[in-house]
Amino acid sequence: MSNDTFSPQGKFTPPKESPWSLSTRRIVTAGVLAGLTILMAYIPFIGYIPLPTPAGAATTEHLPVIVGSVLEGPLVGMITGFFFGLTSFLRAGSPLFKDPLIAFLPRILIGLTSWLAFAALQRTNRTAASALAGAVGSATNTVFVLGLGFLRGYLTWGFIVLIIPQAVVEAIAAAIVITLIVRSYEAVRGRLARARETRPRDTLPY
């Protein structure tokens, strides 16, 4: 059983596990979030938010990765990030994402950086922490994809400058949506009633 603790007021308190271990719950979470990533990659309708920017849209595909690392720690985020990389690698129309280094590395790093951002602020304010995690995760994606693309000669400076407003909008959108998801999930989870195991199983009255 996962050792989550729930205070009587129904307030969510995060489980006390090592962030680098893989429990059943974490495996299942990574699986479902990876499923969402695949879904978002193949249904364009929810895969992007249409916006008046040069590229025309802000992607939402990195959201499952950030949600995974905020809720369940860096390993879940990194596994989901791997799936994000895989879908963009398999679907790639441009040579940029046909380069496995560019398709995978930035996306796996999203899991790590957004978890670090969340863990840094977690104790102070969970809403601010999740907003920061969203913004940092989105920025990691943009910065590393563009940076690696530039280093490996797929992109030029002109193109990168053109992308900057888009990146800012994407980071803000990610911050908002991640906060909504994480906080509402914590509200839902805090409401779940669960018997607390204070004694060994065989001495319990039920």
């Binding site: 938010i49 249409p50 909504l180």
Partner: peptide
């Protein structure tokens, strides 16, 4: 407004997915 409209789908989608996680695990 666009972000709000889309989060009307994305947030419940994540919620139902995460609730299934609870059940499945």
């Amino acid at each position: 407004q666009r972000i709000r409209a889309l989060s009307g789908i994305i947030v419940p989608l994540f919620m139902s997915g995460l609730q299934r996680v609870e059940m499945l695990s």
